[in-house]
């Protein structure tokens, strides 16, 4: 990852969402992006120029644009039409983003389009986040990594975030993932945890 002093940046064309520029690079704000928060907490998977990333829950393409600055190619999956409009606009300017309008809970919809990925990044507001990750791990290379941004409030608002976190870890381990790291994204994002797993 590229740091200018203690500020995380990515190298690419700016102006995507009026982000601040620093020495010609785009500042990647940990309060806006959960992935940036993860790097600020000293965890996460190093993004490399030959990396193929499958990104579930691409939303408006804010974080996607930073990931695309680092990686070789990003397959960005988004379901809702309104954010998809924005994602298309971002993808028009970045030739290494493949925007796909599909439902991450139904990987068969985009299976004919996506290559095997080095990194599976998931940030979806759905109740069954572990199941989604497990189903999409079909696209992950052996030895590839999963970064799951767990929105505990989307799973079940009545449950304690810590309990949701524990259940998700168990489900991932039971599905054959090796949990490498897990961390709460405080103080950047509340009730959000990041889980990093390896597919053996």
């Amino acid at each position: 990852m590229i740091w200018v002093g203690d500020v995380l940046v990515s190298q690419g064309e700016g102006g995507v969402y009026n982000e601040r520029m620093l020495g010609g690079a785009r500042v990647w704000d940990p309060f806006r992006s959960k992935l940036a928060a993860l790097y600020y907490l000293g965890k996460g998977i190093e993004l490399t120029p030959e990396m193929c990333v499958l990104y579930l829950g691409a939303a408006n393409g804010t974080t996607v644009s930073h990931v695309a600055d680092y990686a070789e190619i990003v397959y960005a999956i988004e379901f809702a039409p309104r954010p998809m409009q924005d994602l298309l606009e971002v993808a028009h300017r970045r030739p290494n983003i493949v925007p796909i309008m599909a439902d991450a809970t139904r990987p068969e919809q985009y299976a004919p389009l996506v290559e095997a990925a080095d990194l599976l990044y998931q940030d979806v507001a759905q109740p069954d986040q572990a199941t989604i990750a497990i189903r999409n791990s079909a696209f992950l290379k052996h030895g590839g990594n999963l970064i799951l941004m767990l929105k505990t409030r989307s799973v079940d608002v009545r449950k304690e975030p810590a309990a949701v976190f524990r259940d998700t870890l168990e489900a991932l381990a039971a599905a054959g993932f090796t949990v490498a790291e897990s961390v709460w994204l405080e103080p950047y994002h509340h009730d959000h945890a990041a889980i990093i797993c390896r597919k053996p």
Binding site: P81, M84, Q85, L88, A91, H92, P95, I97, V98, P99, I100, M101, L113
Partner: peptide, 14 residues
């Protein structure tokens, strides 16, 4: 080529 098709598909779906 893939991107071109994906754009067409997404615009159609929206």
């Amino acid at each position: 080529k893939l991107r071109e098709a994906c754009f067409v598909a997404a615009e159609r779906d929206i």
